[in-house]
Amino acid sequence: MQDENERLELLAKAKQLVAHIETNDAEATGELLCSMTIDRERSLFKEVGQLTRQLHDNLSSFALDEQLIDLTGKEIPDAKERLNYVIEMTDDAAHKTLNAIDEILPVTVEMNRKCEELSVNWKRFLGRELSLDEFKVMSGEISHFLDSSCANTKIVSEKTNEIVLAQGYQDLTGQIIKKVINLVQNVEDNLVELVRISGSQSDETAVQNETKKGVLEGPVVPGVVVEGTVNSQDEVDDLLSSLGF
């Protein structure tokens, strides 16, 4: 339709041009020719402009698609893997620690029991209440206690070191989580850019104010403000007692 109009317009101008030439109106002929040339150039520029714009848009959306494909195809699955590894490492560290404590506790309980027993007899010895035979028995017990103490304190220090080493998970998981935070930031930037390019108008406030009912927030993370949360066990107790608990 547009082409037909242009054709008719051009035809009218051509007829006008012929008429001007036939009446030998040099001035009007020159003016009409000039205006027709300008029209021609204008539409050419417009078309070149449109083509350039299209090419630019195609190129930039292509680059974005590449990035998104990389993010969804590789980096996000990687991040899931990393976070699973965080769970695995923390699980492992907690069990290592608890295992070490399981070995330390009975040793210290036994040492404490023996200590108390010996100190009763030792006080009796200092008060000269111990017979020679009882003293001989106590000497043997002290020798045995000293030997076992050497072995037991060695166990305690070895296991304590294991607990210290197990805490290394904090450093490692921290590094992994930081990487995932960067990735999330990257995804966010790309999505914002995608929304900008596609030109769709998002109702930001509506999204922000949407209540997330039924969503479990989990542990409160310092620096992340979640409305309507309590900050301590005391606040939980206060809330419950206000409800008649």
Binding site: L216, E217, G218, P219, V220, V226, G228, T229, V230, N231, S232, Q233, V236, L239, L240, L243, F245
Partner: peptide, 23 residues
């Protein structure tokens, strides 16, 4: 639990929980 939103504590109380400890 690690859940410490007021509305959740109230929900648990209404459901008949006997004690609520946060991690």
């Amino acid at each position: 639990t690690a859940e410490q939103k007021r509305e959740q504590i109230i929900e648990a109380a209404q459901a008949g929980v006997n004690g609520y400890i946060i991690k």
